[in-house]
């Protein structure tokens, strides 16, 4: 299964950047990740889909160790994920993360949200960080909101700021954990547009989402998960027109009806 899909996507992309090898995780008796093997290549956009509770968010969160794993290994750019402390913090600086609930720092302005990492983690001078921050806010179309606080922005705007905040660290890979699931329908597009732009510019992305339109157009590879297992991998074309597993066909049958 894995071998087949890496052949399929090898043409589009470079060498492996994130590698999950025989990853297992339990929540008590619940086996949430079962023998996950996944190799994400530089510049690749991998979209993870599947029913609720399939472990796709957990999978996404293990890549920057917001969730620990019980067995197996995860490497980023050839280096194993450190356990805790400064080294782990350094690794997380290399991995951008966008959350379902935005999680902008509520007591900081939009610009401060974007500059906090560069100033405190990268130790960049404040003026320079602000210049970079404004460029990024410009890029997500929110430069005019810089002095406001997160609570004053709409959900879609907050999520675009969250993307800018992650980009400010100049990450090697971006993780998106259901970035549009908490948004009103009319705000989903503005966030997806930013993500599509990012994908076009060659960012390596892992996206957990229910947005099948985005999966079809922006993904290099679809990973379908159910019950803690990767059941199927392939290009969007293969997956949406010719899903192999009964579980995937059932899932697509349910969501594509409308």
């Amino acid at each position: 299964m894995t071998a087949l899909s890496s052949e399929a996507s090898a043409a589009a992309v470079g060498e492996p950047l994130v590698v999950l090898d025989h990853v297992e995780k339990w929540y008590g008796d619940l086996h949430v990740l079962q023998d996950i093997n996944l190799s994400i290549k530089r510049g690749e956009v991998v979209v993870v889909i599947g029913p609720s509770g399939s472990g796709k968010s957990t999978l996404c969160r293990t890549i920057n160790r917001l969730e620990t794993i019980d067995k197996g290994s995860i490497t980023l750019d050839g280096k194993a994920l450190p356990q805790e402390g400064k080294q782990l913090a350094d690794l997380r600086a290399e991995v951008g993360m966008v959350f379902q609930s935005f999680n902008l720092f509520a007591h900081k302005t939009i610009l401060e949200n974007v500059t906090l990492g560069p100033i405190k983690v990268r130790k960049i001078a404040k003026a320079e960080a602000e210049k970079l921050g404004m460029q990024l806010l410009e890029r997500v179309g929110l430069a005019n909101q810089a002095p406001k606080y997160p609570a004053q922005l709409s959900g879609g705007q907050q999520q675009r700021v969250a993307i800018a905040r992650a980009l400010a660290m100049q990450p090697k890979v971006m993780l998106f954990d259901e970035p549009t699931s908490a948004l009103d329908p009319e705000m989903i597009k503005e966030v997806l547009d930013v993500m599509v732009d990012l994908a076009k510019q060659g960012m390596t992305m892992v996206v957990v989402t229910h947005e099948m339109g985005f999966a079809r157009t922006a993904a290099n590879r679809i990973v379908f998960m159910a019950d803690g297992q990767v059941l199927e991998e392939g290009t969007p074309e293969e997956f949406f027109t010719n899903a192999q597993s009964a579980r995937a066909r059932d899932f697509l049958g349910h969501i594509l009806k409308h």
Binding site: N64, L66, G85, K86, A89, D90, L91, R92, A93, E94, V95, G96, M97, F99, S101, N103, L104, F105, A106, L116, G117, K120, V121, A162, R165, A166, A168, M169
Partner: peptide, 23 residues
């Protein structure tokens, strides 16, 4: 303070000290 605030702080590479003092 919602857990997500600490997760976001850790996700941009802040250490425990930085997460506490800044966020």
């Amino acid at each position: 303070v919602p857990l997500g605030q600490a997760e976001a702080a850790r996700a941009i590479g802040l250490t425990f000290g930085g997460t506490m003092s800044q966020v």
